[in-house]
């Protein structure tokens, strides 16, 4: 598979008061893949994707998106450049309607007319009947789905999902997997995930992070067979 490289990180580093949250990570994301980021709690997964999305500035190292250096680009410009980030803790606009939430994403990329594009984004995740509802009154599962819908409505080239299935019921997880499968290959997906069934089922490649460094990268089969990974992570219940 000689896929085109979408994003490349080199020597990416971020320390917090001596804690090496992310420590010299080299990382490659290929266009059109579903790449899962796994690792024990505190391995630096959220910090790592925050560096990619620009929420946290990197202390050293470089990030290239389609060959363009985006290391110094502020977060909002990275969004415009095609990187969408969905939050680990659901951050929809609770006081606004479901429609407004998605419309904000749609109009950010300059889509026109906004109403049609927003409704299309809602239909994609099956929330179109709830467009007029105040987002804060949605069930937890629906709020998570809305969060993903907002990410998708940006029409990103790279969608970063931070623990998207956390707290979802079985049926909702199935829906989620369908949504993700439907967006590739136009959109490349990078997801942090604890649910191993979801990871093994969805991911085309997996990267294991431990203590801020990469332990292994490979296909689900390779990762399953990797002894170091087994020792550090898979063997333990999480």
């Amino acid at each position: 598979m000689a896929a085109v490289i979408l994003l490349q990180a080199h020597g990416l580093t971020r320390h917090f008061d001596g804690l090496k949250a992310v420590d010299g990570v080299d990382f490659v994301l290929k266009e059109g893949e579903i790449h899962a980021l796994i690792g024990p709690n505190g391995a630096g997964k959220t910090t790592f994707v925050s560096l990619l999305s620009g929420r946290i500035p990197a202390q050293s190292g470089t990030i290239h998106l389609k060959g363009r250096d985006i290391t110094k680009l502020p977060a909002h410009k990275r969004v415009k450049a095609g990187i969408a980030y969905t939050f680990q803790i659901t951050q929809v606009y609770a006081a606004l309607t479901v429609f407004d939430n998605v419309a904000l994403a749609v109009q950010s990329r300059g889509a026109h007319p906004i109403r049609a594009a927003a409704m299309a984004a809602l239909e994609r995740v099956g929330l179109e009947t709830r467009a007029g509802q105040i987002a804060g009154t949605l069930s937890y599962g629906h709020q998570r789905v809305l969060e993903i819908a907002m990410g998708l409505a940006l029409k990103p080239t790279l969608l970063i999902l931070d623990e998207p299935t956390q707290g979802l019921a079985q049926g909702e997880i199935a829906t989620f997997k369908e949504i993700v499968r439907a967006v590739v290959p136009e959109t490349t997906v990078l997801l942090i995930e604890h649910n191993m069934d979801v990871v093994m089922d969805l991911a085309t490649r997996i990267t294991v992070l431990n203590f801020g460094t990469i332990l292994a990268t490979g296909t689900p089969e390779e990762i399953r067979a990797n002894r170091a990974v087994q020792a550090a992570y898979l063997g333990e219940p999480c």
Binding site: S53, H76, A84, V92, L104, R109, L154
Partner: peptide, 9 residues
């Protein structure tokens, strides 16, 4: 923060 991550400065 949410708005920033939707691409607004």
């Amino acid at each position: 923060e949410r708005s920033r991550m939707l691409g607004y400065n």
